[in-house]
Each structure stands twice: as structure tokens, then as C-alpha cells.
Amino acid sequence: MENIKDTQWPIWEVFIQSQAGTPYKHAGSVHGSDKEIAMQNARDTYFRRNEGTSIWLVPTDCIVASNPDDAEMFFDPSNDKAYRHPTFYTMPEGALNI
């Protein structure tokens, strides 16, 4: 299948923080001719219903994504290593905040 070229402006990935101190979550992407316009577009596209208080934008081509073909090699080896979860330890008495 022929790739359909995006003829619009560069794409930016939008990350939003719902409240101060919480991690940024990926919300989606927007077009923007430069970072100011991209920021306005992100605001207008993803912040219409009180979704959050802060925005991060990253040019899509700056994101390094893992290749789906590598998934087996990358992720499967950790499938059967349950001992890596800290579930085999008994909590010492008196330790409250672990």
C-alpha cells in the first residue's frame, strides 16, 4: 500500500498533566507550523474540558520508538521472571511506608 504523505504541518506529540505532581500522559498529536502554533493547537484540541494544567510537546520525529519486530526479543524474556516482582519478601513488622 502506498504511504499517504501528510501534506500539512509537522506533527507534535501532546502530553498532558492532569494536576501538579502527576505524570504526563500522552494525549494524542497535533499539527503545528512551529512550537508556539503547535502549543496553541494542542491547547485548543486537548484542553477544552478542563483536562489538565500543563502541556508538554515533542516533535514526533524526535520520539524514538521500539520496533514492533523487536518485541519478542525486547519484552518476552521478562515474562517468566516473576521473582523480579517484590512479592516474595515478607514485610518486616513495623515498616509502615514501603
Binding site: Q8, W9, V30, H31, G32, Q40, N41, D44, T45, R48
Partner: peptide, 11 residues
Amino acid sequence: PILEEDLALTN
């Protein structure tokens, strides 16, 4: 001219 601007103007 572009979807994002459509949202901006109607916002």
C-alpha cells in the same frame, strides 16, 4: 485551513 485551526476559531 487546517483541523486544529478549525477548533481554535470555534473555541
